[in-house]
Each structure stands twice: as C-alpha cells, then as structure tokens.
Design a protein around this nucleic acid. Structure first.
Length: 652
RNA sequence: GCUGGUGUAGCGCAAUGGCAGCGCAACGCACUUGUAAUGCGUAGGUUGUGGGUUCAACUCCCUCCACCAGCUCCA
C-alpha cells in the first residue's frame, strides 16, 4: 500500500501499481468522471501513469481555474478533429500539429487537394460528434525512436516523421490511439472520446509549418469544445462582446476616425472627435512629463539616410522604412523612430556629470512601412505618434531612472486611468544569444544591460517574464504587454536600455575627474503610440470614455422649439465653464434625441422645458445612471467638476 | 509579404445568370414633443478596379486594389 496526498491535504491509502485513473476512481467515481488530467507530485501526467510510491495527486477538471485540465480536454478534442478529417479525406490530408491554446485548440493540416472553408465545418463537426458518440477508449503506447519513425512513415505522415527526428535523442516517444486513429503526442489525454460533449469549429486560416515564413503554409482550423452546451453559448457570447469592443467598430460608430484607399492602408484619418481625444491625451502626458523634469523638443520627421547609417538603424531597419526619396545630391527618408534625432540634440552641447540625467522628450510622428497584412485600425498604423523620450544618464543613475520610468507607467495606467493591474504583463525582452546579426555583437554589453534590468524588476518586486529574441537591436527592454479585445498581445509602454547608440554618436559628458565619459541612454514611451493607446482605451471602455476624455461631454436637449432660447442660454453657460457642450434642437421627439446622445456615449444630457425654465433649473441625465432629476446649474457644475478630476475608466 | 475569405446607397444588410432591393441615416412636409426610435413623402447606385465569357453578369472566369481572420513581423 502507498499513501496518496490529495489537494485538500487528506491522505488516502491505495494499492501500489495502480494507474492515476484507477486511483481517481477509488477515491471518488464522480470526481474521476469530471477529471480531465492530473498533477502527480506537481507534474502534469497522463492518466495512465502507474504509481508505485507515496505521492501527492491533484485531479484537474474542466474548470476556469484549471488551465491544465482544459488543455487536456482541448487537446483530446484536437485529436478527435484530426481523426474526423482522416475519416473524411484519408491520405489527401497530412497531419502536422494540433495543440491546445488559450481558448480551444487548432490543428494544422496540409493538403493540396482539399481546401477547408467554413462550409466544410458542418461535415467535420458531424463526424466529430460521431467519434464522440462512439466513446472510443484512448490508449497510450511508447515506441523506440526508429520504430516510431517507421510507424509514421507507414502511416504516410511526413510531418510527424520530421517532428520525431527533431526530438532529443533521449526523449520518450509516445503515441495515443483511439479506434483506428493514432497520433504522435506527448499527452495527456482524456480517458475516452466520449468525455468531450460539445464541439464547435471556429475558423480556418493559414499558418507556416513550424512558424517559419520560408516553410510551406498549412491550413489551420481553430476550434473549441466544452463539457456543456451552455458553456459554449457563454463563450460565443463573449466573442460577440469582443466584436462590440473592437475599436474599429467603435471608431466608426462614434465618428472618431476613417480610412480611405486614396490615402492608403495603415493611415487612418482622425475626425474631429478622434482628434479631440488624441489632443487631450497628448496634452496630459506632456504635462506629466514636464512636471517630472522632461524637456520637450520638436525635431523633423525627415532625415538623410546618413543619420540612420550612423545610428546603425539602417542595417537593421531599412526594410521597415518607407523607401528613400532621392534628390539631386541628397537621400532623404521618413523617420521610423526618434532616437537618432535626440542623440544629436544631446550632442549639441557639452554636458557636465551634474547635468545628468537629461530627459529629452517629444510627441513625434514616426513612419514605418508595416506589412500590408499587419495594419489594423489604430492598433497598427504606418504613421504613428510616439510619446517618446530619451534619458541620458550616468551609469550610476540607471537604476533610479528606470525605476522612475516604471513608476510613471504605473501612475499613468493604474493610478490615473485605473486599468486593472492584471491587464498588463511586464516582459523582460532579451536578445537571442545566437543571433549576432539582428543584435549588436557585444556580449559583455548585453549581459550587463540584461542583468541590470532584471535586478531592477526584482527589486521593485514586479511580476515579470523573460522573452528571448524580443530585444531591440541595441539593447534589452522592459515591455508592458497588454491583451486587446481581439486577443492580440501588443506592447504599449516600453523602457529600453541602450549602451550602443551613445557609442555610435560618440556622446560624452565631463565627469567629476574632468575626463570624458560615455552616458547611457534609456529609451521610453508611456502611452506608446497615441493611436495604439486610443485603440486600447476604446476597447477597454467600449467607447464610454471618462468625462475628461469624452469629445462631447454634455448635450443640451430642449423639449421643444419653445425652449430653444433657454437651451441656448444654458449651453452657453456650460461652454463658458470650459466644457465641450452642444445643443441638439433638431425637430425630433425628446426620446429620439436622448437615444442618439446615448448611442454617441455622451456622458451628460441636459433636458430643459417649461418646468426648468420657470424655476431656472436644468434636468440632468447621465449615460449610465439615467435621469438624475432637476438641479441648478451650480449643482451641475459641481457634479461635472468632481467627475472631471477622476480620470479612471469604466470597463463595463 | 503569405494562406483563406469578403467587397452592393453614408451605415447595417438582401438579391446565384434575366427590371438592383430593405432598414437606419440624409432631405422635405406635418406634429411642438418630458428621459433609448412620431407619421407621411423625396432623393440617393457605372454593384471596389480593369478586362473576359454570355443574347443577358451583383452573380461565372482572370488582373489589380482595399478590408477581414490567421501566420510572419511589430510600438
């Protein structure tokens, strides 16, 4: 007999030599039925693992908390999908990989003959449901390397052969078999196909084999499954909500921005209301920076190619830049970033160690020739506005300055805007040690810089993860990653350490010893690009911008023509207080005009009619709370000014 | 850039080879309105672009463009 410690701390005695599944059944038949996979001594294992000695056991279920449990569930469903496709199309379709992802799973198929589309979904789903109904037992077996390769060759699955060949020599090679279908797989998997209840294929798209654009493009089918129909309905409702949050839809509905073929892709035109928001945001961050000792410069959006040859950007970046404008003697380019310009501003005069840190900032326009398939609304554009800054610091100031940048990011995002802290992830973006082409070849510099950033994050007790191959070519970064409504991971704020550009521009300061020293540069952006920040803001708020940012803050609605004069008087008074206010005296019923104001997400509506005019009051309606009743203009002013102070967003 | 899909009035959509339509918005008229849609009427189109097939093309084929999903990239 051996002792099994369960999650709740209780200990069960079971026979030695039972599988995890048998132990689960011995503990509770009901729990065993709900279980999707298990953690044995903290390690995810397959059900079929035999236990010979005392161990801790955690049975995972399909539950929002149990990520691993979901993974096993979805991974099994991906095998069911592959099996269904094999049944329907046989050897015409080759299998590659089919992992679980954050929401559901995908499977990549290769076929020159069969082209999947949403029209094939019904047929595939029907076959999957048949497999589920058959409740095929899922069995695991292992093969030595050579036999495993032979097995896949016999099965006419070339991608599987390649996968095995790339596995480390000592890796256990396991297969999972359900009915006539067998797939190379590390597991874990459910007990049988019948454990899966509801499946839904979501979309089909292309994906390069092994994520490499030089490889063949395979067909990827995304799908999801659940133990209950209602859970699928909830998930689909969530997808609908995400569509409602899409900043492109909000931007169109609220008339914030437009695009036109004649201007070009990735070049949105901000309409008056969108421009108002952008303007307020930029003023906000600029004032914040000024208060922290930043000085703002205004530098050109153009430069000669020599500037980028000097900075080193040319070799690393020229493919992402708009092509050269060639004149008689000059070669000009639109700038993709502001660093080189700011280096020159620093170099313009001699600096003492006492002057540092020097913080040069700019709300600058940058131009990047993004791939046509990558541009997206305001999220990925070809001309962007960066709230950029370069801090020129002494080596002994790095820690303090990076710390201050991180604090500023926290102040802006959490304290001011009130984004939930879990909306971001801190990413320490490191170089790819083996890639000496993309990253400046100077291991000592990299190791120092990377370690410094790592230490700062640890000291500030920030929860962060490290990502290799995400650094800038000149140095490591701390990126703040956010997930958009459409589930994209994007960087907004960033803080980068750079020992390379000061070298290339031969920047110096005079130290205490009277000699020349090399400053270090910290690149940082807080709102990132204003455009991307706006897209994030719109998706987080569903367009219900807080009062300070709302392009229209108040709309005055006279009940009828008779009260237009009074409405005009009220509008003028509110405008004189500095609020963005308009009157809608159009020839429509009050309900209709309120509806319009609601749809435009205007924070406050002021309704005036006979009652208000005779008592010199106004009737106030809030877009969230509805009718607030009547009050004097003075009282309304208090309501507005109080709300104006609060910059926090409302995510509902 | 790659794979697949989509493109019809300002917006959202219908019409699968045979007269290009609906709702909202716009405009006009009437109503003069009390907290999310008043009624009636009018106008609006080279069906993304260029070509082809056909007696006939929104519809079928090809080119290019844009957009959408994903991949690759990326602030």
């Amino acid at each position: 007999m051996i002792k099994i410690t369960l999650k709740d701390g209780s200990i069960k005695e079971v026979e030695s030599g039972l599988t995890v599944l048998e132990i689960a059944k011995a503990i509770s038949e009901g729990l065993a039925r709900a279980t999707t996979c298990a953690k044995l001594d903290g390690k995810i294992v397959d059900f079929r693992t035999t236990v010979y000695k005392d161990a801790s056991l955690e049975l995972l279920t399909f539950d929002s908390e149990d990520v691993e449990g979901k993974k096993a569930y979805w991974h099994t469903t991906s095998h069911i999908m592959a099996q269904a496709i094999k049944r329907l199309y046989g050897d015409k379709v080759k299998l590659s990989i089919g992992p679980s992802i954050e929401n559901g799973f995908y499977y990549d198929f290769d076929s020159d003959e069969i082209k999947f589309s949403s029209e094939s979904f019904e047929k595939i789903e029907a076959e999957m449901n048949r497999i589920i109904k058959e409740d095929l037992k899922i069995e695991r077996f292992e093969l030595p390397r050579k036999e495993a390769i032979k097995f896949c060759i016999d099965a006419k699955e070339p991608y599987k052969v390649e996968l095995i060949e790339d596995l480390p020599e000592d890796e256990t090679i396991s297969f999972y078999k359900q009915g006539e279908f067998t797939d190379l797989c590390a597991g874990p998997h459910l007990e049988s196909t019948g454990k899966v209840k509801v499946v839904k294929l979501l979309s089909v798209s292309g994906a390069y084999w092994r994520g490499d654009e030089h490889n063949k493009m395979l067909q990827r089918i995304y799908a999801i499954s659940f133990p209950k129909k209602s859970m699928l309905d909830d998930y689909l409702a969530m997808l609908e909500d995400a569509k409602e949050r899409d900043h492109r839809k909000i931007g169109k509905d609220l008339k914030l921005f437009m695009t036109d073929e004649l201007v070009g892709p990735g070049l949105p035109l901000l309409l008056p209301d969108g421009a108002t928001i952008k303007d307020i945001l930029e003023r906000y961050i600029r004032d914040k920076e000024t208060a922290l000792g930043y000085t703002h410069v205004a530098t050109p959006s153009l430069a000669t190619t020599n500037l980028y040859k000097t900075s080193g950007h040319w070799d690393h970046y020229k493919d992402d830049m708009f092509p050269i404008m060639k004149m008689d003697k000059e070669e000009m380019v639109l700038r993709p970033m502001n660093c080189p310009h700011h280096m020159l501003v620093y170099r313009n005069e001699l600096h003492s160690y006492k002057d540092l840190p020097i913080r040069i900032a700019e709300i600058a326009h940058d131009f990047r020739y993004e791939d046509s398939g990558a541009v997206l609304g305001l999220e990925r554009v070809r001309q962007m506005t960066q709230n950029d800054s370069h801090l020129f610091v002494r080596p002994d100031q790095i820690k303090d300055e990076v710390g201050q940048v991180l604090k500023l990011i926290h102040d802006v995002y959490v304290e001011d805007f009130g984004f939930p802290e879990d909306a971001f992830k801190y990413r320490l973006s490191l170089r790819d040690v083996n890639d000496k082409v993309k990253y400046i070849d100077n291991d000592e510099m990299w190791n120092t810089a990377e370690e410094q950033l790592r230490q700062i994050m640890k000291e500030l007790k920030l929860d962060f993860y490290e990502a290799e191959g995400e650094a800038a070519f000149y140095g490591p970064k701390i990126d703040i990653q956010i997930k958009t409504a459409l589930n994209h991971d994007v960087t907004i704020p960033t803080c980068q350490l750079d020992f390379a550009l000061p070298e290339r521009f031969e920047l110096t300061y005079i130290g205490e010893d009277g000699k020349e020293h090399r400053p270090v540069v910290i690149h940082r952006a807080i709102l990132g690009s204003t455009e991307r920040f706006m897209s994030f803001l719109l998706e987080e708020t569903k367009g219900n911008l807080p009062l300070w940012l709302a392009p229209h803050q108040v709309r005055v609605l006279p009940i009828s023509e008779k009260f237009e004069e009074y409405g005009k008087k009220i509008t003028e008074k509110i405008a004189s207080l500095g609020y963005r206010v308009q009157m809608d005296a159009s020839n429509e019923k009050i309900g209709y005009r309120i509806r319009n104001a609601q749809l435009m997400k205007i924070p406050y509506m002021v309704v005036v009619g006979e009652k208000e005019e005779s008592t010199d009051t106004i009737s106030v309606r809030n877009r969230r709370e509805g009718d607030l009743g009547s009050m004097s203009l003075k009282e309304f002013e208090k309501v507005l000014s109080k709300e104006l102070e609060n910059k926090k967003i409302d995510r509902k």
